[in-house]
Amino acid sequence: MWKWLHPYAKAEVAYQLCYKLLPYFSWLSVITLAVGSVWGLAFAPADYQQGDSFRIIYFHVPTAILSMGAYTSMAICALIGMVWQIRNAELAVYAIAPVGAVYTFLALVTGAIWGKPMWGAWWVWDARLTSELILLFLYLGVIALYNAFEDRRTGARAASILAIVGVINVPIIHYSVEWWNTLHQGATITKFAKPSISTDMLWPLLLTIAGFMFVLAALTCLRLANQIILNDARRPWVKALVERELSSVSMSKASK
């Protein structure tokens, strides 16, 4: 597997891989999100207790799950970058971070919109809400640290160290906050027993989760490709790439 992976440490190969994967991820995300949200918002049955307002879970649950998933994958990239000194992995940390931060923010906002009619307040100091808010702060710390340095490589490494320190702390924060206060309903699908959600509601939810996952993957590919090309702007392969692009543009103009 190592033989198969190590070419991607090279900037040019990783850049091409990103652009190869980007259309697949984009189209898959469009399809799954469209089907999932139409199914979930229009056709899934209403909840017997919460009525139609439960339907926000089709956006809330995916963003909440992936806000944590994105943090974990960011930390894995950071660890790979630190251990094997692979620069592309360090760049991937910063490619994921803002997307993850936006997901965390969306999870908080959709949760607040749902909480107003259900709990009677936009915000309550409940364990899950609080740890999600802290997760947002952790993301902002990584982004701010990356941007604070003049030298991009130093900033990327510092942000990687912080991401690793943060991921060790995430479970500690989660359980400490949980112990401190709990009001949020328990996990619905991520438990080992049979899911406590009707299958009519579950399928669209799984589709939107997949959709948000593909959005995350697509945005990460796009951002990573941009980071790589920005970092290597003065390398010959970027120059060759730009020349090829320009010549293909002028060719298509000439053919018209």
Binding site: I134, F137, L138, G141, A144, L145, L162, V165, G166, N169, I172, I173, S176, V177
Partner: peptide
Amino acid sequence: IVLPLYIP
């Protein structure tokens, strides 16, 4: 950076 890690 540090304050979120202080919470536990």
